[in-house]
């Protein structure tokens, strides 16, 4: 039976050392670049025709644009317009990274906690910075919830702060756990197919087929959730204080 953990190992391909900073080109790095290339190719090739009446590919590209634009508009309002390239990049990066991991021999970069953590931290720091730059010190009034009797406040404020600080953790853990768990399950069931032989092997195979389908849904869903929460946090930073 195959080791379900082994699929996550990072394999160095080209050793690179930038003045003490380890920057070796690994399979993870390769898939990161592949993600960038795929997204860019998809979008630029689909839009090559620039038809007024879009064909299939162009419709998909335009759909992704309008989907994110709609998310931003609904959750942040018109001030969210300036964050559109970032949110769009975030969504497409995570989405395509998740999907590429589902390809045969694909590597899921988002199944590594460090990757999801960096993405989440960037979002967290960015959103907090937006909030502080917009509202100055009044930003911290966010941690004083309304409608709470004064006696409970010394308890509520630390809890609010912890809740706020837990955002990057939850963002990264959610994506990481979903991807890792999904791939482990697929590997485990796949490992059962051959040992159960020609008669018993069909069951885990069927489960795996369903799992792959489910994981495509999860790939999209997790990208969506990450992006929507980013928009929500942006909304909090911009509107609340």
């Amino acid at each position: 039976m195959a080791n379900p953990i082994e699929q996550f190992t990072i394999r160095p391909l080209v050793e690179i050392n930038l003045g003490g900073l380890d920057a070796t080109f690994t399979n993870a790095s390769a898939f990161m670049l592949l993600t960038v290339a795929t997204v860019t190719l998809f979008l630029s090739l689909s839009m090559r025709g620039r038809a007024l009446v879009p064909g299939r590919w162009q419709s998909m590209a335009e759909l992704s644009y309008e989907f994110i634009a709609g998310l931003l508009r609904d959750n942040v309002g018109t001030e969210g317009r300036r964050f559109f390239p970032f949110v769009f990049t975030l969504f497409m990066f995570i989405l395509f990274a998740n999907m590429l991991g589902l390809m045969p021999y694909g590597f899921t970069i988002t199944s590594h906690i460090i990757v999801t953590f960096v993405l989440a931290i960037v979002v967290f720091i960015g959103v907090t910075a937006v909030g502080i730059m917009r509202h100055g010190l009044k930003f911290f009034s966010y941690f004083v919830p309304s409608g709470v009797p004064a006696a409970v406040l010394p308890l509520m404020i630390p809890i609010e702060i912890i809740s706020y600080l837990s955002r990057p953790i939850s963002l990264s853990v959610r994506l990481f756990a979903n991807m890792t768990a999904g791939h482990i399950m697929m590997k485990v069931f796949a490992g059962f197919v051959i040992p159960l032989g020609i008669f018993g092997g069909w069951a885990p195979l069927g489960v795996d087929v369903l799992l792959v389908g489910f994981e495509f849904l999860v790939a999209f869903l997790q990208a969506y959730v990450f992006t929507v929460l980013t928009c929500l946090y942006l909304h909090d930073a911009i509107h609340l204080h």
């Binding site: 508009r73 609904d74 959750n75 942040v76 309002g77 969210g80 912890i162 809740s163 600080l165 837990s166 955002r167 953790i169 939850s170 853990v173 959610r174 756990a177 979903n178 768990a181 999860v218 869903l221 969506y224 959730v225 929507v228 929460l229 929500l232 909304h235 509107h239």
Partner: peptide, 28 residues
């Protein structure tokens, strides 16, 4: 802006999402 909460819905998905929230609170 209309605040849209991210979809909670079904069992496994919700357990994972919600578990992440609870766990991250504990971790922090």
């Amino acid at each position: 802006p209309k605040n849209q909460a991210p979809p909670p819905n079904e069992g496994v998905g919700q357990a994972m999402r919600v578990g992440a929230e609870l766990l991250s609170g504990l971790i922090v």
